[in-house]
């Protein structure tokens, strides 16, 4: 039985001459969470837009809940929920009216719509504010209302596009708990994020996007193994020495990547700090600062870039 709830094959999308998606393929089984990891501009939102039928792909095909996102957009739309980076609520309407509106548009009767809205307001702790215009809501309340709105139709697949950007830590934790409950209910979730810890906590599988391409796929553990445990960042007194230092580190078998006035190289163990110091010493350079960093999304990129080179 084919139980993939999201299936994208070789999806491409260009804006002008910028290739936002360049042959992306993903597969998400029912009831699992795919974490889509990438920086701004990596193509995460474009992919979400294609999968939620908002943007037709230039090439490739995509199916959500078993329906083609281009030819069967209507069927897809009645089975998905979407929460974007900005709360998409009608500010002139109350929280209650916002949810009733969505339910009515999905095909609920007024009665059913009111019942579903009441249920969601309760779950998202918005009962007290239910009848106030949503323009009076705080940022956190708005995001909760937005998430509630995306759940009105009991969606089979939910797309969360950077749902925790701009949320305070408590609200972030609250959202994580909601996502975990969704999965318990059997919902399939595609979550985009810039934060490795978020993907780590929620996702069954992680796909890393960079410049519109899938650069890595795997579980959190698999990715971390691929990333290496840590990275070393070298700061020099004189930044004009950076090329010289880079050469030295490369000779020592590392893969340094230059930034504005630092060099960062992925390392497998802290012992490689010594390798760095020795390599610099050989060419007569001394680091003003040597920092050992825990793996971050940046390191995923750095490592993958190094592997590609």
């Amino acid at each position: 039985m084919n139980d993939l709830m999201i299936k994208a094959s070789d999806v491409g999308k260009a804006f002008g001459d910028r290739q936002a998606l360049d042959g992306v393929s993903i597969a998400v089984p029912r009831g699992t969470v795919l974490g889509l990891l990438g920086h701004n501009g990596a193509g995460k939102t474009t992919l979400v837009n294609v999968l939620t039928t908002m943007l037709p792909p230039d090439r490739g095909t995509a199916e959500v809940a078993g329906f083609d996102v281009v030819r069967e957009a209507h069927q897809v739309r009645s089975r998905i929920g979407l929460t974007g980076q900005f709360a998409a609520v009608d500010e002139g309407l109350s929280g209650l009216d916002n949810l009733v509106l969505i339910a009515r548009l999905l095909g609920a009767s007024t009665r059913e719509a009111r019942a579903r809205a009441a249920e969601l307001l309760e779950l998202f702790d918005l009962v007290d504010a239910a009848k106030r215009p949503s323009r009076t809501y705080s940022g956190g309340m708005r995001r909760r209302l937005d998430l509630a709105a995306s759940l009105v139709g009991h969606p089979e697949v939910i797309f969360l596009d950077e749902p925790t950007t701009g949320l305070d830590p408590a609200a972030r934790l609250g959202l994580w708990e909601v996502v975990e409950r969704l999965v318990t209910d059997g919902t399939t979730v595609l979550l985009t994020t810039q934060y490795l810890d978020e993907a780590d906590r929620l996702a069954d599988s992680i796909t890393v996007l960079a410049q519109g391409r899938v650069v890595a796929t795997g579980t959190s553990a698999e990715l971390k193994a691929q990333v290496g445990q840590r990275s070393v960042t070298v700061t020099l007194a004189d930044r004009s020495d950076l090329p010289k230092a880079q050469e030295a580190l490369e000779r020592a078998g590392l893969h340094p990547v230059p930034a504005a006035d630092t060099l960062t190289a992925p390392v497998t163990s802290s012992r490689e700090l010594a390798v760095v110091v020795r390599a610099l010493d050989e060419v007569g350079l001394e680091a003003t600062e040597l920092a050992l960093g825990e793996p971050t999304l940046d390191d995923v990129y750095l490592t993958l870039a190094a592997h590609a080179a």
Binding site: S78, E112, H154, L182, D185
Partner: peptide
């Protein structure tokens, strides 16, 4: 949160227009 008792599959154009018009007027 999501497990359906009934699943709604969308509505006819007339209801869409009616509900959306009501929405703008309510604002």
């Amino acid at each position: 949160l999501t497990a359906p008792r009934t699943r709604w599959r969308g509505t006819d154009v007339f209801t869409q227009v009616l509900v959306l018009t009501q929405r703008s007027l309510r604002t």
